[in-house]
Nucleic acid binder design. Structure first.
Length: 576
RNA sequence: CGGGGCGUAGCGCAGCCUGGUUAGCGCGCGUGGUUUGGGACCACGAGGUCCCCAGUUCAAAUCUGGGCGCCCCGACCA
């Protein structure tokens, strides 16, 4: 490709709306352009990167017996009503009506359509197992798009769905997918770690996220440096720091203490001169319409995912002040004591000791509150956020926290959809059985952004060979007709040999070209100039390295081919 | 949805507080010329609904009200 006719120019300065490195560089290098919040066009360079990532994904999916399909984005509401997600999913699912006033949705994921597909085709155990995947558009009306391509409202996703006769077969297939995912990210040049995760609205019995660690990430994960336990913080378990109940007289009844304007645990700790762990923090949630009081030690925080699981709630959110007033409780002085019609869930770290809790009246707290004795405990379970410093449940080493971006997610769905949508088969004995499913997603745009996020320097992007839009940046630094013609011929030779080159034939100064070469970040920069010719050929420099070499013109093509095959060697497909 | 910020030429910004010429600067863009190994120089030039609507005023980019858009921080997800 000649730069002089490449659509999409490079920008010297980053547009003001871009903050993260990947967002700025994708815009500056001319890979993407914004259309609306969370909606982007891919320019030719960006499209080439996407295509290369997709090639890798397709290769890995095909290697584990995946069969590529395309399913529609436009879905009839009936399918989503059948699965129940028409009701369970919020406004991130775009719903509308067609001209005949039929309800439709824009698919944000494809469990419904693929399950429908499967139940129509599959009747016998002989047809199982199989895995279908597609690489296609997803639409999600995200509450807040973010970080350029990190969180989009419309994006390309690889979504795969496997179908199995029983859980043993699903369990046997799952690790193959897991390894394929590791391959994909490695071949894209990324360090990604798998962590245990919350299945969320997709549902199912277990899942893993593939996380790329970065400060700009929106996920927090908990890792054990010793035994390598790794989990998303919203499901991570750990041993909470031990804390004895308070020193108060265990037999004494709760007593009112005047605590004017003392609301937060920090304030209370100062006021009472007690450690945070001697307080009970009460947080009110609205769970599927009803109120739940989460009671937890003052040194811990409530984990909403765990609370949702514990209370089996589909929709769980902090209760608003209005709701609290209606329930007759006082924000800032919440207490499980004397609370009516509210389900009280207590974190399992709360022991039999006595605690300081709210009094449920303004400016008062209760001392010497004992769970069970002074308030009814509907459930006791782990509902706490696991924090850095808590001990690993497996090996007792202190846990650490890290930030990351979720690039892929694999789920063992089990029968969640096949049961709701009645996807069955006849087994060898003629018994009707539910099909089991797994599902597996990768956000392709996000993956591209993450590569830039992890692989860049002060000057620009540093593309891993496998996903670089082109391999060579051919830089012509002379404007005399003879040099131009020579470089044109050289470019034609590279093309004829199948080398991917971006030929900077523009009428621009060396500085401009070198800076654009660094910004776009192709693996090798090849300079053709009078100076290089005088030195014996063209000058080659790898992106991100200082050293350069002169390669004679007649050896250049085979030399470049060798560079390329060497660089690709450790990122090619390797059968397991 | 709550909190914060921004909206003036393709990009980055100034001007707004304290209303008053043809709305300005850098980069980029076009033409001609001189240049050519790390974002050159000279000359000429094109390019603006100052986000939108309403109001105040003799007069609005500037003041007031409403709306829209975009970014960032929190609850959700690939």
């Amino acid at each position: 490709m000649r730069m002089s006719s490449l659509f999409g120019r490079t920008l010297r300065e980053a547009p003001a709306e871009a903050e993260t490195a990947s967002h700025q560089l994708l815009l500056r290098a001319g890979l993407v352009r914004q259309v609306a919040a969370g909606v982007y066009s891919h320019l030719p360079l960006g499209q080439r990167v996407m295509r290369k990532i997709i090639d890798i994904i397709r290769e890995e999916m095909d290697a584990i017996d995946g069969q590529q399909v395309i399913m529609p984005i436009l879905n009839p509401a009936e399918l989503w009503q059948e699965s129940g997600r028409w009701y369970a999913v919020g406004p991130e699912l775009i719903r509308f009506q067609d001209r005949a006033e039929r309800d439709l949705v824009l698919a944000m994921t494809h469990e419904e359509v693929v399950t429908d597909l499967a139940r129509r085709e599959v009747h016998s155990y002989r047809q199982l197992p199989f895995m279908l995947y597609q690489i296609h558009t997803k639409i999600r009306d995200e509450p807040r798009p973010r970080g350029g391509l990190v969180r989009l409202r419309e994006f390309i996703m690889k979504d795969g769905y496997s179908f199995h006769p029983d859980s043993a077969d699903l369990d046997a297939y799952y690790p193959r997918m897991y390894r394929a995912y590791e391959n994909i990210f490695r071949r894209c040049g990324l360090d990604v770690i798998p962590v245990e995760a919350d299945p969320g609205m997709i549902g199912g019995t277990g899942s893993h996220e593939f996380i790329m660690l970065t400060e700009t990430g929106e996920d927090t994960i908990i890792v054990c440096p010793n035994c390598h336990y790794a989990a998303n913080r919203n499901i991570a378990v750990g041993k909470k720091p031990a804390a004895a109940g308070s020193q108060d007289d265990g037999a004494a009844a709760p007593s009112l203490v005047h605590t004017p304007n003392v609301k937060t645990i920090d304030d209370l700790a100062r006021f009472f001169q007690l450690p945070h762990s001697h307080f009970l923090k009460t947080v009110m949630y609205e769970a599927d319409g009803g109120l739940v009081a989460a009671v937890i030690r003052g040194d811990l925080d409530v984990n909403e995912a765990k609370l949702a699981k514990t209370t089996k709630a589909t929709n769980l959110a902090l209760a608003g002040d209005e709701k609290l007033r209606q329930a007759g409780v006082v924000p800032g002085f919440l207490s499980p004591v004397g609370m009516n019609g509210v389900r009280v869930v207590v974190d399992d770290s709360v022991s039999d000791g006595s605690y300081v809790a709210g009094a449920n009246q303004p400016d008062y707290h209760l001392r010497n509150v004992r769970p069970s004795r002074d308030f009814a405990v509907a459930q006791s379970a782990d509902i706490a956020v696991t924090q850095a410093g808590h001990l690993c449940a497996r090996c007792d080493d202190p846990l650490k926290e890290a930030k990351g971006i979720e690039l892929g997610h694999t789920f063992k769905l089990g029968t969640k959809y096949t049961e709701a949508m009645k996807a069955t088969y006849l087994d060898a004995r003629g018994q009707q059985k539910l099909i089991l499913m797994g599902c597996y997603g990768i956000g392709v745009d996000r993956l591209m952004a993450s590569i830039v996020e992890q692989r860049h320097d002060q000057r620009g992007i540093v593309w891993p060979v496998r996903v670089a839009p082109y391999h060579f940046y051919l830089c012509l630094l002379a404007d005399d007709a003879e040099s131009k013609a020579g470089c044109d011929r050289f470019y034609d030779q590279m093309k004829a040999a199948g080398l991917e080159a971006l030929y900077d034939d523009r009428d621009a100064t060396a500085g401009v070209k070198f800076n654009d070469a660094d910004l776009i970040g192709l693996p090798w920069r090849v300079t053709y100039s009078r100076r290089s010719l005088a030195a014996g050929g063209v000058e080659v420099k790898a992106r991100g390295e200082k050293a350069s070499a002169i390669v004679p013109l007649d050896e250049a093509v085979p030399t470049f081919q060798r560079y390329l095959s060497d660089a690709l060697a450790n990122t090619t497909f390797q059968p397991a």
